[in-house]
Structure formats: C-alpha cells, structure tokens
Computed example of a mutant assay.
Amino acid sequence: MNAVNWLDAREQRVWRGFLAVNSLLQERLDRDLQRRDGFTLVEYAILVHLSEAEGRRMRMRSLADTVIVSKSRLSHQVTRLEKDGYVRRESCEEDRRGSWAVLTPEGLKALRGAAPGHVSEVRANLFDRLTDEQVDSLGEIMAVLEEGLRGDSTA
C-alpha cells in the first residue's frame, strides 16, 4: 500500500473553499433560475448548448458529455423540457440506437427570456466580486484543471 500524500493546511483550505464556492454558486444559480424562469441549471445548460449547436440540435450522447451529466439524467431533463414544448427528440437515421435533441422555437424564446436574468446573477455572484486580474487568473486555472480532467483516461 502506498503512503498517502495528505493535504497540508494551505491545500486543505483551498480545497474546502473550492468545494464550498462550487456548491454555493450552483445552488444559488439553480434556485434563481427555478424561481424566475422555471428551469433548473441543468435544463438551462441544455437549452444553451442546443441554441449554440448547428441546426440547434445535438446527439443525446454528445449533449450529455457537453452538459456533464449522466445519460439517464439528461434523458429525464429532456423529457421535462419536451413536456413544456422547449425540446423535441428525433430519431437518428445514422444510428438507430441514438437520438437527437432539438431546440424548438418555444425553447429558444424561453431561453432568450431567461438569459438576461441568469447572466446578471452570474455576474453579480462571480465576476463582479473579482478584479480583472483575478478573472484572468481564474480562467487560466480553470483551463488547466479542465484540460487535465478531460484528458485523464484513468478516471
């Protein structure tokens, strides 16, 4: 058995701070979206990614990877968005097992209605609290971490 390389006090403080900020920010943004627009943060992310995709459609598997949720959670969220008329599923001709999620005009309208309030909340709870230099540093740090996590095939 390998010896554990425990976190020192500084690393422990940073780690716990990261966990707290991540949780608090997601909870605050999710609660605001649900209260104001009736979307969860995940549903909002689905609509955003579909709005940015070519033809406003994505394969369900790719959408799950992009939104960073399990296929079953994505399916549940898309079903809810379908019931509201914001998304529809289409079968994939190239792969009978696959399907497309397609943003409807109603979904685009709902997203456009929700976006200004959401962006204001992101700005108020993240960017307005940081200096320009801190935003640049945070961006660099997030890029390094994301690249490492996405490139880690052992996970």
Rank of each mutant, 00 (worst) to 15 (best):
T104I: 11
L108A: 08
H76W: 12
A114C: 09
L63E: 00
G113F: 03
L103Y: 01
L74F: 04
L63G: 02
K71V: 04
L74Q: 04
R89M: 07
R89W: 03
D84M: 12
L63R: 02
S91F: 04
D65V: 00
S99F: 05
L74S: 07
L81I: 09
G98M: 09
W100C: 04
R89V: 05
L81T: 07
S70P: 07
V87P: 08
S91G: 12
V87T: 04
V69M: 04
R88G: 00
T104C: 06
G117Y: 12
K83N: 14
L108R: 10
W100M: 04
A115D: 12
C92E: 03
R112L: 13
V87L: 01
P105Q: 13
E94T: 11
A114S: 10
G98E: 15
A110M: 09
T104V: 10
G113P: 07
C92N: 11
R88L: 08
K83P: 06
G107D: 05
V87G: 01
S72E: 15
G117E: 10
P105N: 11
K83T: 13
R112A: 09
W100N: 02
R96Y: 08
I68V: 12
K71S: 12
E93V: 10
V102P: 05
V102I: 13
E106K: 10
A64T: 06
T66R: 15
T66P: 00
T66F: 01
V69H: 13
V67W: 05
T79H: 10
I68E: 15
C92S: 04
D84L: 13
D65I: 00
R80D: 08
H118L: 09
V102W: 05
Q77L: 07
V69D: 07
Y86L: 14
G113I: 06
R80C: 04
T79W: 04
R73C: 01
L74P: 04
V102L: 10
G85S: 04
W100T: 02
K71E: 11
W100H: 02
D84S: 15
H118K: 08
S62E: 15
R73W: 10
A110T: 11
V67F: 03
T66C: 06
E93F: 08
K71M: 12
S91E: 15
Y86W: 12
E93R: 11
D65P: 00
R112H: 10
C92Y: 00
S72A: 15
A115G: 00
A115Y: 14
K109H: 10
S62I: 05
C92P: 00
T79S: 13
Y86G: 01
G85W: 00
L81R: 05
S91Y: 05
E82H: 03
A101Y: 03
S62T: 13
D95V: 09
V69Y: 11
E106R: 12
